[in-house]
Amino acid sequence: MTLSILDLAPIKSGHTAAEALHETIDLARQAERFGYRRYWLAEHHFARGVASSAPAVLIGLVAAATATIRVGSGAVQLGHQTPLSVVESFGVVDALYPDRIDLGIGRSGQRRGEIAAAAAKSAEPAEPAELAEKRSAQVVDGLLIPPPFDFAKLVKHPHFAHQASFLQQPGAQTPDFAGQIDDVLALLAGTHEVPAVPGEGARLRVWILGSSGGQSAQVAGERGLPFAANYHVSPSNVLEAVAAYRAAFKPSEALAEPYVIVSADVVVADDEDRARELAKGYDLWVRSIRTGAGAMPYPTPAEADAHVWTAEDLELVKDRVDTRFVGTPEQVAGRLRVLRRVTGADELLVTTITHDHQDRVRSYELLAEAWNRP
C-alpha cells in the first residue's frame, strides 16, 4: 500500500485529551487492519485542540497497540530538543519495537525562532518580494497550486513570541539544522564523540519533513534521506520542495534513489453530500491556527455553521480549504492519484479530522478500499 496516515490526535469540542489519545490508539489499530503502510504522529504545542505534544511517547503507545504497521513522527521539532535527547527517546522505542519506527524530523522548531526574532525587530513583518509576485493560483497538470500563505502574519498574534520562550531553556540557541541532522545520524551510527544509549545502532528510518525548497529539502537530498513534502500545510510550495530535494539528492547507505512522501488532507464518505457535511469544522479549525491562537478543539458541523465569516477570514484559510480532498471514495482516490502523479510521490500521507471518531475511521476504511481497487 502506498498510503500512510498522519494523526494529530485531535481533541474535539466537548471532549478531552484523554479521549483523543484513546481514539488515536483505536485508529492506529484500524489503520493496520485496513492495510496502511505507516502511522505517523505530529508534534504540536500550545493548542487546545491537539493532543500530540509528545510524539516519542505516543509512538511507543501506538507501537505497543499494533503489530506490523510502521509508526513514526511527522515530525519531531528538532529546534526545541537536542539531537541526543531525540535519539535516546526514539532509541528506547526502537529497542522494544525494532524495524518499525520512523524518526521524522522537521525544521519548524528552528523556523519558529527565526520568525519570532524577526517579529521582535519589526511590528509589521515585510512581505517577501517573491511572495508578493506569486499571488495567483495555478493548475499544474490537474493539481491546484494556490497562492502562498504569508506565514509572517502569525507573528502578529501576541502569544507567538511568548510561546516560543517556553520550548527552550532561557538563553538557549538553536544550532543550524544541517549540523543537528549530522549529529542525529552520527549518534545512531555510533560515530559521535558521545554514545546514545539506547539509540546507538537503532534501526530507525530517518526522514526529513519540509514545506518548501529550502534547507529541509536540501539537507534531506544531500544526505540521501527520504523526504516528506507538505501539500496539506503549504500546498503552494509542494512542487518546489520536491524538485529541490531531487536536485540535491546524493545516494547513501539509506537510499540509492530519492524517495518522496507527499501529504494531503482528506475526508471520505459514501456520498459527496455526507462527506461535505463531515468536512464542516475544518475551515474554522484552520482559522484558529492561522490567526496564531493555536488549534481550537475541533468544532461540530453545527458550531461551524454558526460562525460568521468575514472576507479576511475566508482569505486566511482559502489555500487549505481549496486543496482539501473531500468526496466519495472514487472522487478522493482519483484526486490523490493526480497528486501522486504530478509530484512524482512514491507514497502519500493522508490526514483526516472529523468531529465523530467513527466517521474518521470509516473515511480511512473507504479510502483504503478505493485505493486498492484496480
Rank of each mutant, 00 (worst) to 15 (best):
S53V: 07
A293N: 07
D305V: 07
P195A: 13
A269M: 08
L348H: 01
F249Y: 05
T354F: 02
A370M: 08
A311D: 15
R320V: 06
V139N: 10
T291R: 15
A47T: 09
V184D: 01
V87Q: 01
Q168P: 02
T2C: 03
F325E: 01
Q77V: 04
T191G: 11
D271E: 15
Q138H: 13
Y231C: 02
D305Q: 13
A64D: 14
L61Y: 00
P195R: 13
H157W: 09
V71Y: 00
E272H: 15
E369M: 05
G292N: 02
F160G: 03
P170W: 04
T343K: 10
G292R: 01
A63T: 08
R290A: 14
V86R: 00
G91L: 02
F149L: 10
N230W: 02
T300R: 09
E127I: 15
V342L: 07
A295H: 12
T174C: 10
I69Y: 00
T328N: 07
A129Y: 05
P258C: 11
R33H: 11
G106A: 12
K12S: 11
D94Q: 07
P297C: 10
V197M: 11
R341P: 13
P83I: 03
A56S: 14
H355N: 13
S136N: 12
Q218H: 12
F160H: 07
H357E: 08
S236E: 12
A345L: 08
Y259T: 08
A345E: 02
P297M: 09
V57F: 02
L204W: 02
I11R: 00
A31Y: 01
E330A: 15
A306R: 14
E88L: 09
S89Q: 11
D141S: 14
Y36A: 05
V317K: 01
P146N: 08
R48D: 15
F149C: 05
N237E: 13
E32L: 08
R337C: 06
L239E: 04
S89P: 02
A345C: 08
T68S: 14
R276I: 06
A18E: 12
S211W: 00
R276D: 11
P170Q: 05
S136H: 15
Q163E: 14
T2D: 12
R48A: 15
A137C: 06
F151S: 04
A302P: 04
S234H: 06
G109T: 03
V206R: 01
A304F: 03
P128D: 09
L278N: 03
V57H: 01
E88K: 13
Y36E: 07
V233M: 07
A63C: 10
S236P: 04
L6W: 00
T82S: 15
T174L: 05
E347F: 02
Y364I: 04
V308Y: 04
H22T: 10
G109L: 02
S234E: 10
S4G: 15
G72R: 02
P147G: 05
L366I: 07
I261Y: 09
E127Y: 06
F325L: 13
A269W: 03
D271S: 10
Q180S: 14
L284N: 09
S212D: 09
A304M: 06
H45Q: 12
A117Y: 06
A345N: 08
D313T: 12
L3R: 01
A31E: 00
G221V: 10
H45C: 05
Q169K: 13
M296C: 09
A248Y: 04
I25G: 03
L103G: 00
Q138Y: 08
